[in-house]
Amino acid sequence: MAFLLKDLLGKDKILTSGHRLCPGCGAPMAVKMVTMATDNPLIITSATGCLEVSTTIYPFTAWDTPWVHSAFENAGATISGLQTAFLAWKKKGKIDKEVKFLAFGGDGGTYDIGLQALSGALERGHDFVYVCYDNQGYMNTGAQRSASTPMGASTTTEPAGKKSIGKRIQRKDLTMIAAAHHNAYAAQSSISHWQDLMSKAKKAFEYEGPAFINVLSPCVRFWRVPSSKTVEIAKLAVETNFWPLFEIENMKLTLNFKPKERKPIIDWIKAQGRYKHLLQAGNEPVIDEIQKEVDAYFDYLVRLSSI
């Protein structure tokens, strides 16, 4: 059943105003959409990152629900501990509510340093939802390269230069890695597609077992786009097939969005300052390569979805 925005009014209470994320940040949009997709009480953990530091600058917290952070690479393990403690309390009759457990990590905390803890948690089958707000770099510390940084993007640790196109290789396909834990529900979504994201979040909360959602959450600051363009740029990622929307459940892949005519990747590249060096003469083969990879990846998903 589709969500209607008018019915959601008043539910945006889990993450409050007064947080200190940058103007136009995609992360709080993801948090808002995900947390409104359940009526159950939520206990949340965040990996170290933009979201964590900017929402809990002592003595202030923007979380209106139980929340804990301990480190960068361990959100998967922390959520395992939280959810298991809940089972222990339930067994003892110390709690009667059906609590949902939600972890947030950025792409640094999820693709890179936290991948092992996430994989462990998915494999063990705890009942939780892990949301990666993917902004394609270590944005909290100044746009360093992560495994999610796309090919050709300039970052502060793999910058564009006379002998560099920025990142030389394609990003890691984390959603499919999560999906390789066959007991898990895995999905990819974008803050630009709130209905898609909320439906997946609802499914994830209702799923009995581990669920993972990879959400494209633009960092306007380091993608070098105006702060007002967060939604537009995320939408463009979907419309160019750079960021396909799909989900995998019981080893079946569903493509949630197929553009009638996919927009060329140059539209996505041109819109962002982090790619601006690619527009210089001589870099056309790089753009061609990115386009090829985008099309090949989408084709791969199409083939998986039609099996």
Binding site: T16, G18, R20, P23, W63, T65
Partner: peptide
């Protein structure tokens, strides 16, 4: 370092930005 007042960031006004 536990914050016992949930959502007290509402007291931090970001409008000045």
């Amino acid at each position: 370092g536990t914050i016992v007042e949930p959502g007290n960031a509402r007291n931090y006004k970001t409008g000045g930005w």
